[in-house]
Design a binder for these strands. Structure first.
Length: 818
RNA sequence: GCCGGGGUGGUGAAAUCGGUAAACACAGGGGACUUAAAAUCCCCCGCCUGAGAGGGCUUGCGGGUUCGAGUCCCGCCCCCGGCACCA
């Protein structure tokens, strides 16, 4: 390099220069022609952020940087990488904030987006800003609404009155996924139950497929497990119990229960309905109505947090009614109790206190009979039960002709018998519920439905989409459960698209998870206004090659977007049904050993750090501080390591000499290329950076001046972490254009990685007693002989008789003596 | 309770297949260069013991397998994240 290039590393100047050049040259963006004709494509997706007013958080930057590092690595491998970025800007979060500060979200969001965009550029992401999305843009939510219409027409969207989770603070319904231990995910307020008419997507129809496909997709294990648990498949039986009148005769009504242990039906001694169960009125006998109804009202009023507390003592009341156990023919009392949940199974259970812990506790408390129907190998039919025997081996007892059946076969046997006698069937049940997508809020895409008295709910015709969210100044939700839009008559009054009569628009808006359920389909096709996504482009670029994001979305966003993709495939709009080939969850970043929080005062604020050390050093440090998929501890001083490394790299590269490389140094360089090339695709960023540091230390050892051939390969290898610095050095080494435009990643020569001399550890009885350096190809005999002659080793061998010699090539010799 | 992920120096962390535990950094100590500082370079840095050579101990705890275990097996403890009366 020439003399005038020998200046010192100035991160802000270099970063500013390259960010400008990337923009000017379109280095990171793709024209429509490029999108339509790209070969060797790689769709590198990261979870788009909610653009908060506070600006970009280190957690965001950590996630995006890791994804960007991967995208840049793929690009250096010669892939045509598409790395878009957008904004998930609808939803309660924005709306609550807007209410708090008294600014309309339609004014707030654009300024937040602008600020986010600035910050995202500053950290050097290679986002293609010509293909961005903003979920609040009518040009985007037109297609969100179109997707709703597609599901509606396919019979997968249904409006029904259902008990829903109501957050009295946010004044909206919440999906089950948004309720954490009975409290609102956002504000922590205990959630109430309300019955409101809601739109649901029938995701449960896809439960089995969503579960089955988990086996074939390359996802982080933790995420797959979380999805599997969330779907919660269980196998059992649905059994029907006839309700009896006061004379013990069948009334013709039956109560259905779901159980995973139909084989214990002989031990069912009472029945419990959820307080909300529709048959409660019917089975309750006259004298019992006051306490039953009082209990039910109390249960409805009690918030879920209190109600679902596991350690509280069980409560319940007897309805006075009875049903008949179809296995034993005995009458069983019917109770209601809030430990039975309406939303799981059928909302009713057969209680088998002998073999279910909850039923045992309840029966003990209310003095209900407990019958043993399973005997473990140590027990017999009459052994008293001190607690429920719910798992473990055994055989059926007190179960008529099933006595002696092993529990391994009993479920199938009893289910078959129930089916043959017409009172039961095998049944698979899922924990997963249908997806409630209605929100009684303002800040979301209006659900594109028109309610007509004559025609019922009618989809807004495609040509009338989008249904624009009107700007209204009074968008505060209230406790009525009615949406803010229901106060805007001039907006909701319309005519029926089918019959032309006066009709009313749906005034609920949709869940933000619908917005994010398909955004990855939109990015490559943002050039088109007449279609949600272009078929050819979608075929070319999707499914997504790599999706990186946080595990907090393991069961929410990821499940819903898989579902939407499956539906669109079934409707003929896509030819794949899993949206993300590979998904990797990144870890969480903490600061100084503790979770970041304002109260602890350990929140890392990115802007001043970038100001002082540069985006490259910040990126490199974030990737260095721990394994990407596990997260790490951000310690303010730590950035000195990577910062110093980049400095030294700059100095070394800008002073390199054009002469022959040193063989030992060259070997280290080739070893490093080999190692880093292995670690990068596996997201082993921290160890890749460590290897690069080690290599640079070797190049500079003893203050030696680098040879160009030694230092040059480090430039592309550091490029994913420090893209600006790499571009500058690449240019100074005489290259035109961007380092990211070609296949710039170096390749190693295996022959040049081989050491001629190796260190051998010498052990005596497994304890290290010496070390020798030998030629790599020295024979076993010679190595062992050399080992034996080591002074210290010889001393330890002195006393005993040699039994064995273990020789591990190029590694160690272990003498086993007695 | 269930499902994940962890537990290694003062700190963040490394360790392909069971083969020299602590790479790479931060912090700390010492030195060179410098009028000085910064930057840079060199050395030390798990614990105990020893003048040194060396020796003993050490990957949450207790067992086991093995010539050899951070790594494999069995039984525990603790921390983090998620779910939780799911019948």
């Amino acid at each position: 390099m020439s003399n005038e290039d020998r200046d010192s590393y100035d991160p802000s100047a270099v970063e500013e220069k390259w960010q400008r050049l990337w923009d000017e040259r379109g280095t990171n963006s793709h024209t429509l022609e490029e999108i339509e004709s790209a070969e060797n494509t790689f769709y590198n997706l990261m979870m788009f952020p909610y653009p908060s007013a506070e600006g970009l958080h280190v957690g965001n930057i950590y996630a995006f940087t890791g994804a960007d590092v991967h995208g840049r690595y793929q690009r250096l491998q010669g892939k045509t990488v598409f790395e878009p970025m957008g904004f998930d800007a609808f939803g309660i979060h924005s709306e609550n904030f807007a209410l708090k500060v008294g600014t309309h979200p339609m004014d707030l969001i654009p300024s937040n987006v602008k600020n986010f965009t600035r910050q995202l550029r500053r950290i050097g992401l290679m986002s293609d800003w010509t293909h961005s999305v903003d979920t609040t843009d009518p040009a985007y939510y037109k297609w969100t609404q179109w997707i709703f219409v597609q599901l509606f027409k396919a019979g997968l969207a249904e409006r029904k009155e259902a008990p829903v989770n109501w957050c009295p603070s946010c004044m909206t319904v919440l999906a089950n996924e948004q309720v954490i231990s009975g409290a609102c995910e956002r504000c922590g307020t205990p959630v109430e139950q309300r019955r409101i008419a809601q739109w649901f997507f029938k995701i449960t129809k896809y439960a089995q497929r969503l579960l089955d496909n988990l086996e074939q997709i390359d996802w982080s294990e933790t995420t797959r497990k979380a999805q599997g648990n969330w779907i919660g498949r269980s196998e059992g039986a649905q059994l029907r119990f006839p309700v009896l009148d006061e004379h013990g005769e069948d009334t013709g009504t039956e109560v259905e229960v779901y159980t995973t242990r139909p084989d214990t039906v002989f031990g069912a001694t009472y029945m419990v309905l959820s307080p909300e169960h529709p048959l409660v009125d019917e089975v309750t006998e006259d004298g019992h109505q006051p306490p039953v109804f009082a209990y039910r009202d109390e249960a409805t009023r009690t918030d879920l947090i209190a109600r679902q507390k596991v350690d509280k003592t069980k409560t319940g009341v007897f309805t006075g009614g009875h049903c008949r156990n179809p296995a034993t023919g005995q009458a069983m009392p019917i109770w209601i109790a809030d430990y039975v949940l309406m939303e799981y199974g059928t909302g009713a259970i057969m209680a088998v206190p002998g073999h279910d812990g909850r039923d045992f506790e309840f029966a003990t408390q209310f003095d209900l009979p407990i019958v043993r129907v399973v005997a473990s190998p140590d027990d017999d039919a009459d052994t008293p039960l001190e607690s429920a025997y719910d798992v473990g081996p055994g055989t059926l007892v007190n179960s008529a002709h099933f006595d002696g059946t092993d529990v391994s076969e009993s479920v199938a046997a009893v289910t078959d018998w129930a089916r043959d006698n017409g009172w039961g069937d095998a049944r698979v049940n899922y924990r997963l519920h249908d997806w409630c997508i209605s929100r009684q809020r303002y800040w979301g895409p209006p659900i594109p439905i028109i309610h007509c008295d004559a025609c019922g709910p009618v989809a807004v015709p495609d040509e009338d989409l989008p249904v624009i969210l009107p700007r209204v100044e009074d968008f505060k939700p209230d406790d009525s459960g009615i949406s803010p839009l229901a106060r805007v008559a001039e907006w909701y009054e319309t005519t029926c698209p089918d019959c032309g009569e006066a009709a009313r628009r749906e005034t609920d808006v949709s869940d933000t998870f619908l917005d994010s359920g398909w955004y990855f389909l939109r990015y490559p096709s943002t050039d088109f206004e007449d279609r949600a996504f272009d078929a050819d482009i979608t075929r070319r670029w999707l499914p997504v090659d790599m999706y990186i994001g946080g595990n907090e979305h393991a069961v929410l966003h990821l499940m819903y977007s898989r579902f939407i993709t499956m539906v669109l495939k079934d409707l003929g709009h896509l030819d794949f049904e899993e949206p993300y080939d590979v998904f990797r969850a990144h870890g969480l970043i903490i600061a100084e050993g503790a979770k970041m929080s304002k109260s602890k005062g350990n929140v890392v604020i990115p802007d001043p750090i970038i100001e002082e050390f540069g985006a490259d050093a910040f990126r490199a440090y974030l990737m260095f501080l721990g394994p990407y998929e596990e997260g790490g501890d951000y310690q303010a001083q730590g950035i000195q390591g990577p910062f110093g490394f980049l400095h030294r790299l700059w100095d070394t590269a800008t002073t390199a000499e054009d002469s022959e490389p040193d063989v030992d140094v060259e070997r280290k360089v080739h070893q490093t290329i080999k190692q880093v090339s292995q670690q990068m695709p596996a997201l082993g960023f921290n160890t890749a950076i460590a290897a690069l540091m080690e290599c640079l230390n070797t190049i500079r050892a003893g203050g030696r001046t680098a040879k160009r051939a030694e230092i040059e390969p480090l430039v592309p290898m550091v490029a994913p972490f420090a893209p600006h610095l790499a571009e500058e050095l690449w240019q100074r080494f005489g290259n035109d254009g961007s380092i990211f435009d070609g296949k710039s990643w170096p390749t190693h020569d295996e022959a040049k990685t081989v050491e001629s001399v190796v260190e051998i550890a010498i052990q005596v009885n497994g304890k290290l007693r010496g070390q020798i350096s030998v030629a790599r190809d020295m024979s076993e005999e010679d190595v062992v002989a050399a080992a034996r002659s080591d002074e210290n080793v010889a001393r330890h061998l002195g006393g005993g008789e040699e039994r064995r010699v273990i020789y591990v090539k190029e590694r160690l010799v272990n003498f086993v003596i007695t």
